[in-house]
């Protein structure tokens, strides 16, 4: 009975994040317009955009192969799996078989892998450049995420995301400094993974004409844009659900879930406001200088390990 309940929760959670994703990005756009002193698009504009693209004709470049066509579906499916498996409203992971830090990192890498592969497959120079940037970002960011999650697993005594979330929910266990450093490193990684300025390397509109997205059109582009927005929401939720889980339901019931949802949404709004302020007050990094700033993330993650070892 319990497992049946958990599966419904997992599916519900995935579907909710999927449906919320355009709202979250619409919210980002509204904030961006406010900071620009523009009127800007309405909150629900991204739903309209996706709906419009779904009705449009799809054009595939001549040289493109199977990977180019399959990528939007693979991306969407992988991200949905991540969305279903990580703890968001509950402290435990809804799909504990998948909700493991190693699967999480692998699924994230899978997204990057297919995203850049489709860029190469499309045959466009800009998409190719975007693809190579994407893989470079991957090699820069993966050590940060892995090291931070490794320290988190040491702190929690398990690689299960649910167990990590439980241990972060109760700060009384000690090692506050290590926990804070892990959270900071993950926050940094989540921001980079959201693909916002100054780290929107692969899709830099003015430089690369949106990189791997260049050649997509119609429903493919709609799916892809939706996936990119879902990824942003998933990264924000991952940070909140696993590392800032205060208010999440320890034992799932209607009342606790409802309360957890309210708290989650408030935290989400805070995260998106902070992200909007950062992304709108800087220029894009020069690509070959990116590694200079991603070292900060790795440094913080390494600091977390040191804190753990000395028992702070």
């Amino acid at each position: 009975m319990a497992s049946y309940y958990v599966i419904i929760l997992a599916i519900g959670q995935g579907a909710a994040l999927l449906l919320l994703a355009p709202l979250a990005s619409g919210f980002s756009r509204v904030l961006r317009a406010k900071i620009h002193t523009r009127t800007g698009p309405p909150l629900l504009q991204d739903y309209r955009d996706i709906f419009k693209l779904l009705k449009r004709q799809e054009i595939v470049p001549k040289g493109a192969g199977l990977i180019f066509r399959a990528m939007p579906f693979i991306l969407m499916a992988t991200l949905l799996l991540i969305a279903m498996s990580m703890p968001v409203l509950t402290l435990a992971s809804p799909l504990s078989a998948v909700g493991n830090m190693f699967t999480f990192v692998c699924l994230l890498a899978l997204v990057r892998f297919f995203f850049s592969l489709s860029g190469v497959d499309s045959g466009s120079t800009f998409a190719g450049l975007g693809a190579s940037r994407e893989t470079t970002m991957c090699t820069l960011m993966e050590p940060v995420i892995l090291l931070a999650l490794f320290v988190a697993a040491l702190l929690a005594g398990s690689t299960d995301l649910g167990r990590i979330s439980v241990s972060f929910a109760s700060p009384s266990q000690g090692l506050i400094a290590a926990e804070l450093a892990v959270t900071a490193a993950i926050a940094f990684a989540a921001f980079v993974e959201m693909g916002k300025v100054p780290f929107d390397m692969a899709e830099a509109e003015q430089e690369l004409q949106e990189g791997p997205l260049t050649e997509y059109s119609g429903p493919g582009l709609a799916l892809l844009k939706w996936s990119v927005r879902l990824k942003q929401l998933v990264m924000a939720s991952f940070l909140i659900g696993v590392f800032l889980p205060y208010g999440a339901a320890a034992s799932p019931s209607a009342a606790t879930l409802l309360w957890a949802a309210v708290v989650f949404l408030i935290k989400l709004v805070v995260v998106f406001v902070v992200v909007a302020v950062i992304e709108n007050s800087v220029a894009r990094n020069r690509f070959f200088m990116t590694s200079h700033s991603t070292w900060i993330g790795f440094g913080v993650a390494a600091l977390a390990l040191v804190f753990y070892l000395v028992g702070l």
């Binding site: 961006r32 900071i35 620009h36 002193t37 523009r38 300025v197 100054p198 929107d200 830099a204 509109e205 003015q206 709108n280 007050s281 800087v282 220029a283 894009r284």
Partner: peptide, 8 residues
């Protein structure tokens, strides 16, 4: 350079 706030 992607600093649209300044642009606007």
């Amino acid at each position: 350079v992607g600093f649209d706030t300044g642009f606007m």
